[in-house]
Amino acid sequence: MLNIKNLHVKLEEEDKVILNGVDLAIGAGEVHAIMGPNGSGKSTLSYVLSGREGYTVTEGSATLEGTELLDMEPEERAAAGLFLAFQYPVEIPGVGNMTFLRTAVNAQRKARGEEELSAGDFLKIVRAKAKTLQIDADMLKRPVNVGFSGGEKKRNEILQMAMLEPRMCILDETDSGLDVDAMKLVAEGVNALRSEGRSFLVITHYQRLLDHIQPDFVHIMAAGRIIKSGGPELALEVENNGYADLLAEAE
């Protein structure tokens, strides 16, 4: 599904290297988690994959189902099946959540040469998906993320994911700022979307999210590289011993 090879990235405006040779291969239907201390480059990886400005790729590649991602515009990546659940979902005053969702869904369908959804069908699908995420009609009517609580914003991200049906989902610190109940709700939303053809990359600082979203593989990232990979037990190791030992080991 997603293949990252020797990815080197620096900031566009200053000479600061953030990613220093990342290698990662995610197969179809797999759930991978990336853990790491603050400043290790986890969020940068998600931004670079989704095409945010401000970064320069100096070396390496990232392909989605064999197609090079790094040359594409953000919307082309989305149409190709990539989805990033933002750590800080952006507020867009004046634009209704429903409008936003429908515009996005239909833009992607169009890009893939599919028929656009009719208003009625769209509404039905949104309502059903929103219900399982406990998103009420009021939240759908309000402007995108404006005045949403932390939990509401994250659930809204998962609702977008559910509507857009991407094949490769990146969750950037989706657990940050959530209490346990909110996190469970979000995790259930994600688990409901797990399927053979859909892969996940869960970026998190803490192990707790991984109690709810069971990963197949766990990677530890530090100083812009993946320093260790393993199974779910690696996450527990971090939980119990912190990052220090792993970092020392990598040195």
Binding site: S50, G51, R52, E53, E73, P74, E75, R77, A78, A79, F83, L84, F86, P89, V90, E91, I92, V95, T99, F100, T103, A104, V105, A107, Q108, A111, Q160, L164
Partner: peptide
């Protein structure tokens, strides 16, 4: 806001219009 819209699949002009 533009990046958020584009990461959901809208092209740049569509994102600006929205």
């Amino acid at each position: 806001q533009l990046f958020y819209c584009r990461s959901r699949g809208m092209d740049e002009e569509e994102a600006v219009a929205l």
